[in-house]
Design a protein around this nucleic acid. Structure first.
Lengths: 128, 128
DNA sequence: CTGCATCCATAACGATACTG
DNA sequence: CAGTATCGTTATGGATGCAG
């Protein structure tokens, strides 16, 4: 799987897998995609989304939404009414990227034991 | 899949999936695990590892290694010789967590088209 | 060779207050 | 309701030099 150069293995930070991982490196983006993926009807309003994402600030919500919109993963629908109404939904490309995210969510749910073991080791080695 | 509270969906930042994702949020940790996972024999020295991870600084290498060691994913073997010799290898728990990481690497390699599409959209929407 | 310490720049994040 | 702006804190990461 890894690239071999002069008989030595090489791993690159700008490889495809790493480009994918960068999506995960920002705290809320995956949760936004995950939430939209599971939203009944696939569309939801700003406020609803914020209330569903426990602990997210308005700033990070909007910032995350702009981010995924810029990347072409989410589409924004603005209704010209008062009070304002805006709906968000995954694009086709967004649903493609929901796939690995759902894989991770699945794995996480099925491997709580491993996650707990890691946390336990973590606390045990505080003074390392 | 999501939790339902009062008929509304709720997504928590401290859920199992998110705890897994936190492993991914630090730039080099996944690459270190990925590299060790594919290393012939499963053990490798500090310098070898650094040379294989393109662009990593010494500081981040050591920091990442201490991180995964603290989490119980990697074991450190110190040889009492001069010049110093240290080897790293994945623990059993580490090999468990290599699984989702390899899944992501696999997905990334198989979906270069989607990644390129995202990048293209990204650049097109610069002035958004 | 391995590891640590230091300095510094930037990015991520949260809280709050304000506009239409 | 949706979105913006500002401030301050913390985390992240790179460069460099030193020590065993």
């Amino acid at each position: 799987m890894p690239v071999i150069v002069d008989g030595k293995m090489k791993f690159y930070a700008d490889s495809e897998p790493r480009r994918l991982m960068e999506l995960f490196s920002v705290k809320w983006t995956t949760m936004v995609i995950h939430a939209l993926y599971h939203w009944p009807g696939g569309k939801c309003r700003t406020g609803e989304l914020q209330r569903s994402l426990d602990g997210i600030s308005k700033k990070m919500l909007v910032q995350s939404l702009r981010e995924v919109e810029r990347r072409g993963l989410v589409q924004r629908h603005v209704f010209s009414v008062v009070p304002p109404k805006v709906e968000y939904q995954l694009t086709e490309l967004g649903r493609v990227f929901a796939e690995p995210i759902e894989l991770m969510y699945q794995w996480g749910l099925e491997n709580k034991a491993a996650l707990d073991a890691m946390e336990a080791a973590c606390q045990q080695n505080q003074g390392l």
